[in-house]
Simulated assay, not measured.
Amino acid sequence: MSDDAASFAACVGAPAVFVAMPEEAAPFLDAATARCTAPQPIGTAETYALELDGRPVLLVRTGIGLVNAASALSVVLELFDPAVVVSAGSCGGLRSDVNVGDLVLGTEFRYTDADATAFGYAPGQVPGMPASYPASKELVAAASALPAPEGRVLWRGEMLSGGSFVTAQNVGATRETFPTALSTDMETTALAQVCHTRGREFTALRSVSDLCGPGAGQQFHMELDVVARTSADAVLHLLRSLPTA
């Protein structure tokens, strides 16, 4: 068996971390004490077999968007059977008291732009599916003990995802529909839905890179590599707290 084949074989049943962009993958690759020599492609996604703090971890770069995330996870579940899935990387700050650099721990996940309310469904609910997808209670409990980023806040609560960017022009309607939501991105809820249907433990730890509707005096943007490191550090702390197989 080649070294890469052995590395990927070791990732069967290991935790899987999902990011969308190369910049979000970079901190995990930098932190690895061992890694595959080349990523394994899944369509346009890439998987990396890593060793982090002495344990195998599968890193998956999906590309941006709900379909890219869900399709990559579906294949990963078949090939690697991860018991734990974590969404990492950046997000947009949605609630008015969230600031750039803050860390968001997801406890439930909804879609911003699923709307079947005319048929009696809740905003963000896909017909036939729950109104929201809950995170793993065990993972949330473990991640709640994480230290907040220096000078920033660790939030825990509702995260949104959709196929459209939430901007200053449309943030008002989103906040009105989802008044408790902390953040928005374009992958996490799709991952949560797949994990829900497949019975896998899931949560998200993402750091805020932009504010969808900044208030007066708020910094509205932080560099992607900075927030990617914040998210990755939190995920690495979380992985350390999990029992090894």
Rank of each mutant, 00 (worst) to 15 (best):
E51L: 13
R200C: 04
F8A: 07
L73F: 06
P41S: 05
E150C: 10
V85M: 08
D185Y: 03
D115F: 14
Y48A: 04
S87N: 15
V19D: 03
R95W: 03
A122I: 02
S132F: 04
S209G: 15
M129A: 12
G157H: 11
T184I: 13
L146D: 12
V76N: 01
L29D: 10
E78L: 14
T117R: 15
D53R: 14
S7K: 14
E201S: 13
P149A: 04
A49L: 05
F119Q: 12
G157V: 09
P56I: 08
P27L: 05
S183I: 02
Q169L: 13
G199F: 07
E78K: 15
T174M: 14
A83K: 11
A204T: 00
V235L: 01
A70M: 14
E23K: 04
P22C: 05
S231G: 15
L79V: 06
A34G: 15
G163Y: 04
A228Y: 07
A204N: 00
L224I: 12
P243F: 00
G128Y: 06
P27N: 02
L73G: 01
L29M: 14
V98R: 00
A10F: 08
V166C: 11
L66D: 01
V85L: 00
T167A: 10
T230I: 13
T47Q: 06
D210S: 13
C195T: 15
P214C: 11
A20T: 11
C212R: 05
A148T: 02
R110A: 09
R156W: 00
G106L: 03
V140K: 04
E46Y: 04
R95E: 00
D4I: 06
L191A: 09
F109L: 10
T177A: 03
C11V: 14
R229C: 01
C36N: 14
V194E: 11
H221G: 05
A83N: 10
R200S: 04
M21W: 11
C11K: 15
S161A: 15
A32S: 06
A228D: 06
C212Y: 09
M186P: 02
T203E: 07
V227A: 08
D225P: 02
I64D: 06
L224F: 04
S209Y: 06
V84D: 07
V76I: 06
A26I: 03
L50A: 01
P22W: 10
L66R: 02
A49K: 01
T177L: 02
A38V: 10
P134K: 11
G63E: 08
V140S: 08
L224Y: 09
A192R: 03
V12A: 00
L103V: 03
A190G: 15
L73T: 00
F178N: 05
M222S: 09
G162N: 07
A142I: 06
L59M: 04
D185C: 00
S90G: 12
N68W: 02
T203G: 04
M1W: 14
T44R: 06
T117E: 11
A34C: 07
G217F: 03
M129I: 02
D233C: 10
